[in-house]
Amino acid sequence: MSGMPLDTAAIMSTVLEGILYGFSILMFVGTMWTLTHKNRTQAVNRPIATVAILLLLLSTAHMIVDIVRIEEGLVKYRHTFKGGPPAFFADVAQVTFVTKNAIYIMQTLLGDGVVIYRCYVVWQSMLIIILPSILWCITGFTAVYSISQATSNAGNIFAPATGQWIQAFFASTLSTNLLSSGLLAYRIWMIECSISTSRTRSGSTMPVLRVLVDAALLYSVTLLPALVCFICSNNGQFVMIDLLIPIISIAFYMVLIRIAIRRPQSYLFRGGGTSDTERGNRQHAMKPLQVHISQFTQNDINDGTSPYSERPSTYKQEPDAVSE
């Protein structure tokens, strides 16, 4: 093992995680406001609200376990644990270590599951999400197995019997996130290209695309260093893993909040001509958008806050706009 001492890594990771956790709480409040603002109770998108609450609960539980672990390693067992604090934090058989990693696994699987679900809603095809779903299952399997192997190699988490499975876990969750986000972004880009020639109002779906790409990059740029540190047997991976917990929540909240902020500012279509031919062409051109984009956003943010609201298929006076 190399890098900073484990007791130093534990303190640093808890402090940095606490900062990001506080920021995630603020974003959670903004997300719940976005979901409930101007909506009746029965109109709130309950599945998305449930995911947001679960992410907050898991982040909170992980933060609490980290604080307990710091107190035990640096205070409670400082003079009684053989080898002192560094040996305590190196012992992966400790209840606090197993618990915090179990929470991290649940947070990761929940975050990856949301991305796969969004990908399915936009594509409306089970075939598209087969590979991401397989990778998601592999992530869960390797995570559980790596923990069972870690407890049998309590003194060294980088031992070959443990390390290969943890590396597989990191690689599978990174691949799941990048593949699902890539398919999602590609589909939105295809829709943007298909409607760009018939658009008569300023605006596009590109802001939504940028939001999704930003969320994927935020998660990936944190997970990739964790994987590299683990391959190099560097203790910095403990810091990066703890930072991933609030970042998963922040990435989820960011998508909802940024799309809601964009909603009143621009439009995808603005009315030009009013002839029957133009109405018919516009109606035909908007069909792919109505089928895919509106369903995607309605599953994330309910009707009152969605940046793309479902519109009637008949245009009488002035063509309705699909707001962003």
Rank of each mutant, 00 (worst) to 15 (best):
L6I: 02
L6G: 02
I11P: 08
G18N: 10
I19W: 08
L20C: 10
L20D: 06
Y21A: 11
F23W: 14
V29G: 12
V29Y: 12
L35H: 06
T36M: 05
K38D: 14
K38T: 07
R46G: 02
I48V: 11
A49S: 15
A49P: 05
V51Y: 01
A52S: 14
L56T: 11
L57D: 04
L58A: 08
A61G: 14
H62L: 05
H62C: 10
I70L: 15
E71A: 11
G73M: 04
G73E: 04
L74C: 09
K76R: 12
G83R: 11
V92M: 06
V95Y: 07
V98R: 13
K100G: 11
N101I: 02
I103S: 09
I103D: 06
G113R: 01
Y117G: 01
Y120R: 01
W123L: 00
Q124Y: 00
Q124D: 01
L127H: 10
I128Y: 03
I129Q: 01
I130R: 09
P132A: 07
S133P: 08
W136R: 03
G140M: 07
A143M: 03
V144T: 08
S146L: 05
S146G: 10
S148A: 14
A154L: 08
A154R: 14
A154G: 13
G155Y: 09
I157M: 14
A159G: 07
Q164T: 11
Q164K: 15
I166R: 01
Q167S: 11
A168N: 06
A168R: 08
F169C: 08
L183C: 13
Y186S: 11
W189K: 06
M190H: 08
C193N: 13
S198F: 10
S202H: 14
S202C: 09
S202E: 12
G203S: 08
G203K: 07
M206D: 00
L209C: 09
V211W: 01
D214P: 00
L217D: 00
S220D: 06
V221N: 04
L224N: 04
L227T: 12
L227S: 09
Q237Y: 15
L243E: 09
I261A: 09
R262K: 04
S266M: 12
G271R: 10
G272Y: 12
N281V: 08
H284I: 07
A285M: 02
K287Q: 13
P288D: 05
Q290V: 02
Q295E: 07
N302P: 10
T305A: 13
S306Q: 03
P307L: 01
E310A: 08
R311E: 12
T314D: 14
E318S: 14
A321R: 13
E324A: 06
